[in-house]
C-alpha cells in the first residue's frame, strides 16, 4: 500500500509517515502542491493524505485534478480549519474523509484504514487477528468461529483496536474516536473502562485470549498474548 502525504509542516508529516510506516505502509512526503502534482502524475497511490492549506496553493486543486484524471487514490483531507464549508466542499469534490488538526495519530490511522477498506476491499474486508475475525461488510465478529454479539460502540472499539494493534492507545484518542469531540474526556474514561471490560469479557467467554492490555494511567494496547 502506498501513501502520499502532502503536508507543508515537515515535523507533522514525519510523525504521520513514522506512524503509518510502522503499520506497514509505504509513505512518501511532499511539502508543496507542485511536487504533489508531479508525484501523482508519475506514480499511483492508494491513499493521499492532503493538507488543504499549502504554501503554494489550495490542496483542493490537487483533489480536483485527481478526480479529473480519474485517479484511483483515496483522499483524506487534513485541515487546520474546522469549517463545515471546507469539509462539505472537500467531500463534494470526492474526498473520502476529512480530519481536523490536531488529531490523534491512531485516529488518522483508523481513517486511512477505513478509506483503504472502502476503496480496495469495497467495504468488504475480513480482518483476522489470532482467534478473532471481523467482517467489515456484515459487521460480524467471530471468536474461534463462534459469533460474538457486540453493541455498536463495542464493535467500533474493537475495529479501532484492531486497526491500531500493538500500540498504546490513549484514553483521549479512544474517547474521541467513539464519541467525537462532543464529550468531555474526564467523564468518558469511565465509559471506556466499562466498554473495554465488556469487550474483554465477551471475547474471553468465547475462548479468546485477553488481547486488551491495560497500560496503567495511559490507556490500552491491543496485542497478542
Amino acid at each position: 500500500m502506498k501513501i502520499l502525504i502532502v503536508e507543508d509542516e515537515w515535523e507533522l508529516a514525519q510523525s504521520l509517515a513514522d506512524y503509518l510506516q510502522k503499520e506497514g505502509y509505504l509513505c512518501e512526503v511532499v511539502q508543496q502542491l507542485e511536487q504533489a502534482h508531479e508525484k501523482v502524475q508519475l506514480y499511483a497511490y492508494d491513499v493521499i493524505i492532503l493538507d488543504i492549506t499549502l504554501p503554494d496553493g489550495n490542496g483542493l486543486d490537487l483533489l480536483k485534478k485527481l478526480k479529473r484524471d480519474k485517479k484511483e487514490a483515496g483522499v483524506l483531507i487534513v485541515s487546520a480549519r474546522d469549517s463545515l464549508q471546507d469539509k462539505l466542499e472537500g467531500l463534494n469534490l470526492g474526498a473520502d474523509d476529512y480530519i481536523t488538526k490536531p488529531f490523534h495519530l491512531a485516529e488518522l490511522n483508523a481513517r486511512v484504514n477505513s478509506v483503504i477498506r472502502r476503496r480496495i476491499y469495497q467495504g468488504n474486508q475480513e480482518i483476522v487477528f489470532e482467534k478473532i475475525s471481523l467482517n467489515t461488510d456484515t459487521r460480524e465478529v467471530k471468536v474461534n468461529e463462534s459469533s460474538l454479539v457486540l453493541t455498536r460502540k463495542e464493535y467500533e472499539l474493537l475495529i479501532y483496536l484492531l486497526n491500531n494493534k500493538n500500540r498504546v492507545l490513549t484514553k483521549e484518542a479512544i474517547a474521541e474516536h467513539l464519541w467525537g469531540e462532543g464529550i468531555d474526556e474526564a467523564d468518558s474514561f469511565d465509559f471506556i473502562y466499562t466498554h473495554i471490560k465488556n469487550l474483554r469479557k465477551k471475547i474471553q467467554d468465547k475462548g479468546g485470549d485477553n488481547y486488551i492490555k491495560t497500560i496503567y494511567g495511559m490507556g490500552y494496547k491491543f496485542t497478542s498474548v
Binding site: L12, S15, Y19, K101, P102, H104
Partner: peptide, 12 residues
C-alpha cells in the same frame, strides 16, 4: 492547531 498537532503526534 498545526503546532499542537505536531506536539500531540510526537507525544503519541
Amino acid at each position: 492547531q498545526t503546532p499542537l498537532a505536531i506536539i500531540q503526534s510526537k507525544l503519541e
